[in-house]
Design a protein around this nucleic acid. Structure first.
Length: 899
DNA sequence: ATAGGGTTAG
């Protein structure tokens, strides 16, 4: 229809009524195009003195609002000689349409003051503003107004109120309003379904959908668009069902619906189906393309994502900030700095570098792909007003790259420019606290979190728990845990993991009980942590029970649980179980292989460990930093000096792994054990690291074994200079003098140690007695189980003494039972060890196991009878699975020692 | 007057 022009009309007509009618027709047809053409109906109306006609003026008001915006409309409104509810409502909806919800509410206040009573249309606009502002207080007041004015059963208002309650987080109340509505149409059903999806109550949303169908209400495109977000968590089959249903209902596949379907399939990792849907109609826009690109990115199909971007541009659709951030995520995913830089230049060409979304993605990309913090900073500085998200990218990026200081500084800067941190920011900065173990920062952030009530967010609470636990402030960590509204598996995993790191395995296992009382189910990560606590304690029974739980809960097939199982059985000396756990992993990773090698090497299966290392390489795995520590350990303990040296050489030459200080410490151990003390010293002098106390202790231990006083004295001096508070140097040196026939020097060394206020660290050990793990400190005689253990170990000592097999280190000391347990633990390494008493057997986690101890006492080998089979154990080697199946008595009464 | 699609940070 073509527009009649007012000028033409004024010339041809004289009747006012007819003029008014035509004016209204013009107004109803007016849009911005018509205005551009110069149509102006305002002045003839004024000329004819018709401005007092309210009906005409209200239409004119809406014309101004639609075509010129809020300000001219408000000016017109203020000039109106008379106003009715339609005028007020027209102005109000102009504010709402332009997203100026605050002003809309102010305007409504003005209306109330003027004494004008609102109608259902007014209230609808006001409710919408409240809902979009999240102003729940104002909203409930309007709700009361709705009831007071008798509009409660108005279906338009009903839908708006459902939306209001749902957007403010009161889904249950929203449902109540919905249930109380007497005329529920497609829109109110769609609103409640959409609210439920928004609240991530997907199964409830689907249940409502089914109820809607049963009630005979027809869904439309709108209904499906929101509903299609549910299958992401409910499973692909629901998505397919919905898709089938919308086809059978003959739903028109418009762009919005098509985009929703594409998203559904791509979130379920079904990109082929997503593409099939998107090709069903020729319509494409930038939103659909962005969905396709982000789908490919999520499926890690970066090449396809780039191809899609290319195709999009060929078809003439211009990528926007969202599109660029999607494709940048693809470059971060494959860590391609080159691709990221290309996109960066495109963003600059498009003039989007100052955009919060595109710029933010750039910062994130540079943080992930580039080693230069300057790159990310440069992109950051281009952004005119960085949002809290952009700041968080920067802060998180800094802390991930080990620039914690910059992280803290950026955090301060962000606050200084008035950007408030949100839960994402706080959890990122707390991670930096955990890493650098900063007490002051943690406490400061804790204060901020309490003040801003950010601790309600579980992720923030978890990060705070982790930060305190990392500092070793276990009580404070627990305090935060109890103050949290909601705790999840991560909360407890953080605690357990940190306690494991501190070697407080028995405390870590107590977390299980707390977790259980809190009704929090274990996930794969927590299970792996608890298994690793059990491994640290060699708590067979607990570990086995956890293994059972993980099978029941369907967690055992997860890679972290499987790897933890390999490690657990390995550390307990159950080599065949470790091997079985390894075999059960469908796709073992480097951690699985390392776990198996470690289990074999630490139980003395040196040749098996080394052949597993070969198997690993044959399977196509590149050994890592840890693999080489294990291999060097194996060689060192197997006395395979030359092989160990070869492997050490190959690290850099064949595997491009630069040896770290740990590897040099292994090398020193390897040479030292073999008596090549001068070579070991040479390694310390020439290695590219500053020696630490541990490496000197290692060498001093070797000096002691080989009774080299001259070097031992030198090493002890170096070590005490480095760490004057470590008593180990005095203890080792004293033992060296003692064993070299210099008791006077030994005595004076011990005296110097005492004079300097140093005491030998009290040994600790754990014992699993009747499925409960007990912690003992050396000398602590107050433990309730002490007598039982005392008896067991005393009889063991007697047994060993009678056979003349007691290892000489312990022979002349009247070791008490718990001390002996500690001593067992200290046989191989000064680290804390655990001993398990099970079926009258003692099994030590650190010293391989009991059989290993026995073989230490004899010179060459022992033979053990297991039923009708004889097992030969050579010195330095043992077969733990056999040992575990034997009774202590059998070992002692049936073994024949050849000396 | 009421309901709908894409993006970046833990």
């Amino acid at each position: 229809m073509s527009l009649p022009t007012v000028t033409k009309f004024v010339i041809n007509t004289t009747q006012v009524n007819c003029f008014k009618e035509t004016c209204l027709r013009v107004l109803s047809l007016c849009n911005s195009r018509a205005l551009k053409e110069g149509v102006c109906v305002h002045s003839p109306i004024t000329k004819l003195g018709l401005q007092e006609d309210l009906y005409l003026s209200n239409n004119l008001l809406s014309l101004y609002a639609k075509c010129f915006g809020v300000e001219p409309a408000r000016h017109f409104f203020d000039e109106m000689p008379d106003r009715d509810v339609v005028s007020w409502t027209g102005m109000l909806s102009a504010y709402v349409r332009n997203g100026r919800y605050d002003e809309a509410l102010e305007f409504f206040d003005l209306m109330s003051i003027s004494g004008q009573c609102p109608n259902e249309f007014t209230l609808s606009s006001v409710l919408r503003s409240c809902s979009l502002l999240g102003d729940f207080d104002y909203g409930t007041r309007i709700h009361a107004y709705v009831i007071k004015l008798g509009f409660e059963s108005n279906q338009y208002l009903g839908s708006t109120m459902i939306d209001l309650y749902a957007k403010c987080g009161f889904t249950d109340e929203a449902c109540k309003i919905f249930r109380n509505m007497d005329n529920r149409d497609t829109i109110s059903w769609t609103t409640i379904i959409s609210s439920l999806v928004q609240a991530e109550k997907f199964s409830q949303a689907l249940a409502h959908y089914m109820e809607m169908i049963c009630a005979g209400v027809h869904p439309n495109e709108f209904t499906f668009v929101k509903l299609l977000a549910a299958p992401y968590s409910l499973g692909l089959n629901y998505g397919k069902l919905l898709h089938a249903h919308l086809i059978s209902l003959g739903m028109r596949l418009n762009l919005v619906l098509k985009t929703a379907l594409v998203n559904m399939y791509s979130k379920c990792q079904k990109m082929e189906d997503a593409i099939k849907v998107s090709n069903q109609t020729p319509d494409y826009d930038v939103l659909l393309w962005t969905s396709v690109i982000s789908g490919f990115t999520q499926s890690l199909r970066v090449t396809d994502a780039i191809a899609a971007l290319h195709e999009m541009e060929l078809s003439g659709i211009v990528p926007n900030n969202f599109t660029y951030s999607s494709i940048l995520k693809a470059s971060s995913e494959i860590l391609s700095l080159e691709l990221g830089k290309q996109i960066h230049s495109r963003i600059i060409k498009a003039g989007l570098e100052d955009d919060t979304c595109a710029g933010g993605a750039l910062v994130d990309m540079y943080m992930k792909c580039s080693d230069l913090a300057e790159d990310a900073l440069g992109a950051f500085r281009d952004i005119t007003s960085p949002s809290v998200i952009t700041w968080t990218s920067l802060i998180a990026g800094f802390s991930e790259h080990g620039f914690e200081k910059d992280s803290f500084q950026s955090f301060e800067e962000m606050r200084a420019v008035g950007v408030q941190p949100n839960s994402f920011t706080l959890s990122s900065i707390l991670r930096a606290c955990s890493t650098v173990k900063s007490h002051s920062q943690t406490v400061k952030l804790h204060g901020l979190i309490v003040k801003t009530k950010a601790g309600c967010d579980t992720v923030v609470g978890n990060a705070l728990v982790d930060a305190y636990a990392a500092l070793g402030m276990v009580d404070d960590a627990w305090h935060v845990v109890t103050s949290m509204i909601h705790r999840d598996a991560i909360t407890y995993t953080c605690l357990a993991t940190r306690m494991n790191q501190m070697g407080r395995y028995e405390v870590a296992l107590d977390v299980i009980v707390r977790m259980h009382m809190d009704d929090v189910e274990m996930d794969g990560f927590s299970m792996a942590s608890f298994l690793s606590s059990s491994a640290g304690l060699a708590a067979m029974e607990t570990g086995r029970q956890l293994h059972c739980c993980s099978i029941k809960a369907g967690l055992a097939s997860g890679i972290s649980v499987s790897n933890a199982l390999v490690d657990f059985y390995g550390k307990c000396g159950c080599t065949d179980d470790a091997y079985r756990a390894f075999k059960g992993i469908s796709e073992p990773d480097i951690v699985s292989w390392n776990g198996l090698i470690s289990g074999l090497a630490s139980t003395g299966h040196i040749s098996s460990a080394l052949s597993t290392f070969d198997d690993m390489r044959l399977a196509g795995f590149k050994p890592d930093y840890i693999t080489f520590l294990l291999v060097l350990f194996a060689c060192s303990h197997g006395g395979l000096v030359e092989l160990g040296l070869e492997h050490f050489q190959s690290m850099r030459e064949k595997h491009e792994i630069a040896p770290q200080l740990d590897h040099y410490a292994c090398l020193v151990d390897l040479l030292g054990r073999a008596g090549r003390l001068e070579d070991a010293m040479e390694v310390i002098m020439t290695m590219p690291f500053k020696p630490d106390a541990l490496i000197y202790k290692t060498l001093l231990g070797a000096c002691k074994s080989h009774r080299n006083i001259a070097l031992g004295e030198y090493v002890a001096r170096q070590g005490t200079e480095l760490d004057p508070s470590d008593p180990a140097f005095y203890v080792l040196l004293a033992n060296l003098y003692e064993e070299s026939g210099q008791p006077d020097l030994a005595k004076s060394t011990r005296r110097v140690m005492r004079e300097r206020g140093l005491k030998k660290n009290p040994g600790q050990c754990w014992m699993e007695i009747r499925n409960k793990v007990h912690l003992f400190n050396a000398g602590d005689r107050s433990h309730p189980q002490i007598n039982e253990i005392h008896e067991k170990v005393e009889s063991l000592i007697t047994e060993l003494k009678n056979r003349g097999n007691l290892y000489q280190d312990y022979e002349d000391s009247s070791y008490h039972s718990e001390k002996l347990a500690v001593a067992f633990g200290l046989l191989r390494t000064p680290r804390n060890a655990s001993i398990r008493i099970s079926k009258n057997m003692l099994i030590c986690s650190e010293c391989h196991n009991f059989i290993m101890l026995v073989t230490q006492f004899v010179d060459r080998e022992i033979i053990v009878r297991d039923g009708n089979r004889l097992h030969v154990f050579k010195k330095g080697e043992c077969s733990c699975m056999v040992a575990a199946s034997l009774q202590q008595d059998e070992i002692f009464h049936n073994s024949v020692c050849h000396s």
